[in-house]
Design a protein around this nucleic acid. Structure first.
Length: 568
RNA sequence: CGGGGUGUAGCGCAGCUUGGUUAGCGCGCAUGCUUUGGGAGCAUGAGGUCGGCGGUUCGAAUCCGCCCACCCCGACCA
């Protein structure tokens, strides 16, 4: 690759709309340009990185026996009606009509397409198991696209779907994908973590998310360094320790105008955790009380799981008006009749607590759970926090921000039942196929790699996903002998099988180095003064800043060696 | 959807409060000369529907209205 002909316009300054490092540096380095909100052009260098990542994914998917297919982006409404998601998917699906007025959606995911393909073309247990995957564009009309490639409206995704005869087969397919994903993220050079996850709109029972730890991540994960327990914060468990405030007799006290946890705890001189926060939810039109300690948040994903419906919300102002028996700011579980009361596990047996009295301007103190009121159920409802005890061992949970780069699901029979994807077993009986699905956000992964590998000057690509292995940077390129030496070395390196970018521009050293830093190619060979004096080149390692003056042959050898270590 | 902000040359910005000649600066670009180990210097030059539409006015980048786009926070989504 000759830089003089390479379309990689670099920028000295960050574009005004780029906030985070990956977005800024990918644009400045000439990898990426914005077209519209959440929609991007990939320039040649960006495409090279994408193809590297895709190559790794293909190898590892194929290694586990998955087969590549290409499914349409443009998808007819009828198939989405079969799964029931044409209406349920909502505004996040981009929709359009053809000239005859027929409805189509731009695929936000491909369960419908793949299930239809497989059900129409398999019939026997002999056809299973089957694992099909594709790498291609997905469209999601995000409420708020942001952070460059991390939350885009059009993005590239690898999605795979497994089809098995039974549950055990499905679990084995799931394990295979877990292994493949582990190798993929290792090879992409990111520090990652697999966490237990919610299944959301996709559905199913068991799921893991693959998180790349990074400050800009929109997800939070809780993990234990002791036993390896790790889960999305939305459903992370934690061990409850006995919770009791100062012992005192049950008593109603005046708390005029004190409504929030902060107000009440300050007014009464009680720690927030010794308050019982009583949250009123409207669940499918009916009120439900949710109790958590005053210093904790209720997790809505946890709530969704125990309620078995996503049709619930915290009381709005209008709900308080419709249910005047609940006194806003003073609701409490004692004497709260005719409503389901769900309490977080931490409240079991708690004494000396403070809660609302269901009477304006009054709270109860000295409340004992079980004596003064009995919740319908004790459940895991509160969100874990950094420092909470691990649910599985004596360790402590840490909470960190992460970027979700992949998620795998055991779908079970969800789509095969609704779409009639069945096979005939050995006994001639018709059975539904057990499915799994497995996604990797390829473009998001590219951004996540940059988030973990950059400095203030530019990107530092891990060798295996870098746009090239070596950046050959001759200075004083206008000098005939320098040009000739560079061309010779360029040819040598290519013959070694290396991917080389030659900076054959007559630019100043400063310009060349600045662009080189932005590109982030792992190895830089500088042909300059040192070469003139000794015939040697300077090898610079982008990730560590190491420099060594060595002969051109040695330099090529070192890069080859590094490539050998990663098996490339 | 709510709140905040921005829109002026390829990029980054000033000018707008208080309307008034050819709308500025830096970078980039072109040409020439001099430079060449960390984004060189000098000279010359090209490049603008000032986001759009409408209004006020003798006169609008500037004031008013509507619309559009983009960014941030939140809600939503997962």
């Amino acid at each position: 690759m000759r830089q003089s002909r390479l379309f990689a316009p670099t920028l000295k300054e960050s574009p005004a709309d780029a906030e985070i490092a990956s977005h800024r540096l990918l644009v400045r380095g000439g990898f990426l340009r914005r077209v519209a909100s959440g929609i991007y052009d990939f320039l040649p260098l960006g495409v090279r990185v994408l193809r590297k990542i895709e190559g790794i994914i293909r190898e590892e998917m194929n290694r586990e026996g998955a087969q590549e297919v290409v499914l349409p982006i443009l998808q007819p409404r009828e198939l989405w009606e079969e799964s029931g998601r044409w209406s349920r998917y909502g505004d996040e699906m981009m929709r359009l009509k053809d000239r005859a007025g027929r409805d189509f959606g731009l695929g936000p995911t491909h369960e419908e397409m793949i299930t239809a393909l497989v059900r129409d073309n398999i019939s026997s247990y002999r056809d299973l198991p089957l694992n099909l995957y594709q790498i291609g564009a997905k469209f999601r009309d995000e409420v708020r696209p942001r952070f460059g490639l991390l939350r885009a409206r059009e993005f590239i995704m690898k999605d795979a779907y497994s089809f098995d005869r039974d549950e055990e087969g499905m679990r084995e397919s799931y394990r295979a994908m877990y292994r493949a994903y582990s190798r993929i993220f290792d090879r992409c050079g990111v520090r990652w973590m697999a966490v237990e996850a919610d299944t959301g709109l996709i559905g199913g029972d068991v799921s893991h998310e693959f998180m790349v730890l990074a400050g800009v991540g929109e997800d939070r994960v809780a993990y234990c360094e002791g036993c390896g327990y790790a889960a999305n914060i939305n459903l992370a468990e934690f061990r409850r320790e006995p919770l009791s405030g100062p012992e005192r007799p049950l008593e109603k006290v005046s708390t005029p105008g004190q409504k929030t946890v902060e107000e009440v705890s300050g007014f009464l001189g009680v720690e927030p955790r010794h308050l019982i926060k009583c949250l009123m939810y409207l669940v499918e039109g009916k009120p439900v009380a949710v109790l958590v300690p005053g210093d904790r948040e209720a997790g809505e994903v946890k709530l969704e799981r125990v309620l078995g419906t996503s049709e619930f919300r915290l009381f709005h102002q209008g709900d308080w008006d419709n249910f005047p028996q609940y006194v806003q700011g003073f609701v409490g579980p004692v004497g709260l009749d005719g409503v389901d009361v769900l309490a977080d596990l931490s409240l079991r047996g708690a004494r000396g607590m403070v809660c609302g009295s269901n009477e304006e301007d009054h709270h109860l103190v000295g409340v004992e759970v079980g004596r003064d009121f009995q919740p319908n159920r004790f459940l895991d409802l509160a969100l874990a926090r950094d420092g909470d005890p691990c649910p599985r061992c004596e360790g402590v949970l840490r909470v960190a921000a992460g970027i979700e780069v992949g998620q795998i699901f055991q779908l079970g029979l969800k789509y095969s039942l609704s779409m009639g994807c069945t096979y005939t077993d050995e006994k001639g009986e018709e059975r539904p196929v057990h499915m799994g699905c497995y996604g990797i956000g390829v473009t998001r992964l590219m951004a996540a790699i940059v988030e973990q590998h950059h400095d203030e000057r530019g990107i530092r690509w891990p060798l295996e996903v870098a746009p090239a292995h070596v950046h050959l940077v001759p200075l004083n390129y206008e000098k005939e002998e320098r040009r000739k030496a560079a061309e010779d070395l360029y040819r040598q390196l290519l013959e070694e099988g290396l991917e080389v970018l030659l900076d054959d521009r007559e630019e100043s050293a400063g310009v060349k180095f600045a662009d080189s830093d932005l590109f982030g190619i792992p190895y830089r060979l500088v042909l300059g003064r040192v070469y003139e004096e000794s015939g040697k080149v300077e090898l610079q390692v982008r990730s560590t800043g190491e420099r060594a003056v060595i002969s051109p042959e040695e330099a090529a050898g070192q890069v080859r060696q590094a490539l050998g270590r990663i098996g490339a």
